[in-house]
Design a protein around this nucleic acid. Structure first.
Lengths: 231, 231
DNA sequence: TAGATTGTTAATCGATTAACAATC
DNA sequence: TAGATTGTTAATCGATTAACAATC
């Protein structure tokens, strides 16, 4: 186990490696080299080897990594070896999507309850998962020892829900509400603001458009557009 | 405008600054210092000043930044000054959430169409937005000159949809499908894999749990737990 | 043994932080 | 002018890339 804190960039890549390993194992591939992992993931082979080396020597020189063994190791490192139970706050479209997705496609994390303030939704189900009233959350969280929660409520309600969750034992939150949450130091909050993602993407698309436009102009204007590298 | 390419980290922060400025303007705040922006955003004042300085000198020494002026500038930098029209592929829960959200809460980006393969959805609407058949996408994209698309279809369909979109002029994609897409160099793809986010969050929550456990043990074992710093 | 590929150390690159002169 | 805060340069920190010895 690591002495120094591992960088966030490394941690963000681990689940990607895990998914690739899952796919390889399903395809009955026993061994994989860092070069092959590089091809599948888009990261460099050096980086992959270095990332893994932070946690131990999991490979075999000359041969590569045993897929099943490496998978086990990564699962342990992330902490997915014990089944993770999580709850979702907000049974809107996003909450529903997240609940559905994580109960069917995510083999490592289980959504076991959804909470919503809207009494018309309470008592209904998302697939097999019950929707409870927000008031029932404290008891539920404590009873099941829930440590991880997903917040997909409107921005105005997000802080209140955070306070509630944290107060009853939640220490990790994935927040989809477009607000900066306040929370105690021991709590981990990751923000997944889909609007921001989309907006920053625009920057690159406009840059690209301008580049293309400039290109068109230059190509038109220049006398000899023979050797023209796109870069 | 910048000579050297601006780093991705800077670009990711710009929409956050923009949102804070929007809020300040709504609260009739005219001027804001980098220190206040730091408080609102969680980034350091130095970093904010440096980020902005990449694009020009927008502030007034001794006074700070004019909120309306800085907002205008950031909008121009990101490329949100021309109304951005985008389309969503996949009218499932996630696609619906994204469509709703960006048509009501995102003042800078407009979803103008949703495409889905499921004929039972075609012809329906998400709020005011029409759901079209996937076959109609090529014509629609070309007619409206769509450059940005959101992909929220199942993993198995994502590559096909990407190919289609790119082939008809899309140059920027926000991809929610948990697959590594292949695409030409001139296309920008941002991946927003919600499962991966959740999994990497688990790492920190287990680390935190272990730390708390260690703490409990140590506190129990030690004779004099008088001066005990959490950090 | 020869070939392949890891694990690790060193070199480079990039991003953040600190410091401060410029100036409102 | 004095106080405040920007814009910018220099210093530090951290992450990625390159190189290669270790070893299967």
């Amino acid at each position: 186990m690591p002495d120094r804190a591992i960088s966030k960039s490394v941690i963000k890549r681990l689940p990607i490696y895990l998914r690739i390993l899952d796919q390889l194992i399903q395809r009955k591939v026993d061994m994989v080299s860092s070069k092959e992992l590089s091809y599948e993931s888009g990261f460099t082979a050096e980086q992959i080897r270095k990332d893994l080396a932070y946690f131990g020597a999991f490979g075999t020189r000359g041969a590569g990594y045993n897929t099943a063994y490496l998978r086990e190791k990564i699962i342990k490192i992330i902490g997915l070896d014990k089944k993770i139970e999580t709850v979702v706050f907000g049974a809107g479209n996003l909450g529903t999507a997240l609940t559905r997705y994580n109960s069917t496609k995510n083999p490592y994390v289980n959504v076991i309850a959804v909470f919503d303030r809207d009494s018309r939704l309470v008592g209904k189900k998302i697939d097999e998962i019950d929707i409870y009233a927000l008031e029932d959350a404290p008891q539920f969280i404590e009873k099941h020892g829930i440590k991880v929660a997903v917040i997909s409520v409107p921005a105005a309600a997000a802080q209140e829900v955070t306070d509630l969750a944290v107060h009853h034992g939640v220490i990790a939150i994935l927040n989809f509400a477009p607000v900066k949450l306040n929370y105690p130091e021991h709590v981990q909050v990751h923000n997944a603001d889909l609007t921001l993602e989309l907006q920053s993407l625009i920057y690159y698309s406009s840059a690209e458009e301008e580049r293309l436009e400039r290109l068109r102009k230059e190509t038109k204007g220049s006398k000899s557009p023979k050797s023209f590298t796109l870069e």
